Computed example of a mutant assay.
Amino acid sequence: MDLGLRDQVVVITGGSSGIGYETARLFAAEGARVVIAARREEQLAKAAASIEASTSASVDTVSADVTRLDDLDRLVAFVRDRHRRIDVLVNNAGTGTYKPFLEVTDEELRHGMEINFFAQFRLTQRFAPMMIEQGSGVVVNVSGATAIRVTAPPFLSSCTGPAKAAENRLSKILASELGGYGIRVVAVVPGLVDTEERFAKWGREFGGGHLADEGAAANRLEWGKGIARPGHAWGTPGEIADLIVFAASGRSTYVNGAVLVADGGEDKS
């Protein structure tokens, strides 16, 4: 199936690992011109080299912290100078804070809103004028399951959930406000996804570091038991990337303002 993405300029934040990396790889395989942004230059370079080796595409990298306004401006300037347009923005950068409500610090609360909701708002606001000028564009905001349901330990979500919920609401509002300019906006909500960095963070914040030991796989299996498909409780970054790329493609032109949930049937309500 031709997704109509050849030569499209695609910008992906948090593109050096996990869902962002797999999304970048799939876009590159479809012939898109991909720009990945993340904080760590070394990891960005490795990700770009890996994608280029597997797809024969050329991938641009920009070292950027999405909580820093100067970095956002620099990313936008790079894309404008390098490609003169942007067709797809994937706001994927984000993280969670997995601590009980009474233990969340004010610094963690601010950071959670900045890296999740504020970053998506600010970067979309900076790229939207380019999309308006060209009369087309797609924004995919990657949210999270804590936006739509209350979760039990170790997925405590009093800090992260409200920020993720704001991402979903922003997507719906922007779909309405920007739709007249030919711009689509959708949110993608991953369920339990098997990513190394997230497991490490859970270990530090919830498990006191125990997730780094040899019992980590057994713990993850127990957490996911009965939540999704039998034998497949945890999704993969590639499965979420499939949905992101399809939602951004020319095969999804009637999808606008939608909150697309990919959780393997996790929600039993």
Rank of each mutant, 00 (worst) to 15 (best):
G137F: 00
G137I: 06
V138A: 11
V139G: 07
V140S: 09
N141R: 13
A145K: 06
T146P: 14
T146I: 14
T146D: 15
A147K: 00
A147P: 06
I148V: 12
R149W: 11
R149T: 14
V150W: 14
T151F: 08
A152E: 14
A152N: 12
P154V: 05
P154Q: 08
P154R: 03
P154D: 10
P154H: 05
F155M: 13
F155K: 09
L156A: 02
L156P: 01
S157I: 12
T160S: 12
G161I: 04
A163M: 06
K164P: 11
K164L: 12
K164S: 11
A165M: 05
A165E: 08
A166Y: 04
E167H: 00
N168Q: 01
R169L: 07
R169I: 05
L170V: 02
S171V: 09
S171C: 07
K172F: 00
K172M: 12
I173P: 00
I173H: 02
I173L: 03
L174V: 00
A175T: 03
A175D: 10
S176N: 00
E177L: 03
E177W: 03
L178A: 00
G179Q: 01
G180M: 06
Y181Q: 10
I183M: 08
I183G: 04
A187Y: 05
A187Q: 04
V188Q: 06
V189R: 01
G191I: 13
L192F: 12
V193L: 10
T195W: 01
